[in-house]
Amino acid sequence: MALGIAAVLTGCTATYRTAEAERAFPPIGKFVTVDGGARVHYIQAGDGPDVVLIHGAGGNLRDFKFDLFDRLTDHYRVTAFDRPGLGYTDRYPGIADGPFATAGESPRQQATMLREAALALGVHDPVVVGHSFGGIVAYAWAVMGLDEDSPVNASAMVSFAGVAMPWPGELGPYYQINGSAFGGAVTIPLISAFVPTSKVEDVIEGTFAPQAAPDGYAEYIGAPLALRPETFRANVRQVNTLRPHAVELSQRYPELTLPIEILHGTADTTVPIDIHSEKVISLVASAHLTRMSGVGHMPHHVDPEAAIAAIDRAAARAGLR
């Protein structure tokens, strides 16, 4: 009886917090439907060459809308997407998504959905920009262009502290447990229902460390959306199942010839520069790395002018400017 009551209480509390999160942080963009009936949430504005923005793990398109998006629209047509399963974008069609499932969308599956959405929106020859987990989705987008003749093939790519390569060792227990069937059914509902707001704020500050998050960022980003059980499950499963896909994708990197600009902080402990971006530039002759001394995992917020300059360089190298 005690376990049953606890389960009901947890479920009701998680449902209430989900409703509150969606009331406080509703969709700020529009939706486009892709093959399989999935809806992709996006924002689009501006004129000029196309730039596509892909956010990182646990986030949503509000990360870019907080600052960088509006800085770009004077010179580019900018499209930011919620990645599959996050924000207000549906999961990849057909993927198992129940409490006991463990599947996560691969970078290629995510790129497939976003490329279909971009095609429906008339995007062509975009500069594809990815932050953190969005970085490896951007690399997948670029690799797909090696095999497909499509208007949405990337003309250039930009990585902000992007995941790119397989890492040594294993992920910590947070992802291993929450990405498991047990975690999906037990620990995620508990965290969704009862984790305090202060813990969410601590995670945000940890992501920016050693810098501080900009004023107003935590209030704008909609972090409670990431605590919704379905979103939480999608995020941890994508991360927990990522490494084999990174191994596979990285084998294609030497074939890439498109301009690649990388911004990566030397103090990034979330996606360490030596494991990821330093290795990319040894594999891809067209990749250029800007090392940002003492910067953590959020270079596009720490120095938005450097982020814009990286996009401008990529566009110029691709002949778009």
Rank of each mutant, 00 (worst) to 15 (best):
G94Q: 13
A38H: 05
G94D: 13
P272T: 02
A314H: 07
H245T: 03
S250K: 08
P259N: 14
D125K: 14
I43S: 12
R317Q: 10
K279C: 01
D82K: 06
F31E: 12
S180N: 14
I308N: 07
Q251I: 14
D274W: 08
G98M: 03
G222K: 08
A7V: 13
Q110W: 04
G135F: 03
Q211N: 12
I262P: 01
E22V: 09
T290N: 15
T112N: 09
M144I: 03
K199E: 08
I311K: 01
Q211P: 07
G179P: 04
K30F: 12
P272R: 03
V32T: 02
A193Q: 04
T207S: 11
P214M: 03
H300A: 08
H124G: 14
I191C: 10
A120V: 04
G104L: 00
A234E: 05
A21R: 08
D50I: 05
T266I: 05
L114H: 07
A185S: 15
E22N: 05
V32H: 10
M144E: 12
M144F: 15
S277Q: 15
A246H: 13
I54K: 02
P210E: 13
V8K: 13
Q176W: 08
A314F: 02
F81N: 01
Q251H: 15
W141E: 01
P254T: 10
H75R: 11
I273W: 03
D97C: 09
R62A: 07
I281T: 09
A38K: 12
S132M: 09
S286T: 11
V163I: 07
F100V: 06
I191P: 00
A38W: 02
A218H: 03
A218E: 00
P166D: 09
H75D: 10
T33C: 07
D202P: 08
G169N: 08
G162W: 00
K199W: 12
H297E: 07
G319M: 00
L72H: 02
S180K: 02
A154R: 00
P26A: 06
P259D: 04
A80G: 10
A315K: 00
I204T: 14
T15K: 05
P304Y: 00
A287L: 02
A142P: 00
T79P: 02
V158F: 01
A185E: 10
A101R: 01
A111C: 07
A267Y: 04
F100I: 13
G11W: 02
A267L: 06
I275R: 05
T257D: 11
M298R: 15
V78P: 04
M165K: 09
H41P: 07
K65M: 08
E305V: 14
R317S: 03
I262C: 02
G85D: 03
I28S: 13
A101K: 03
G48N: 07
A226P: 10
D50Y: 05
P173W: 01
V78I: 04
G94T: 14
V137H: 10
L86M: 12
A154E: 00
A306C: 10
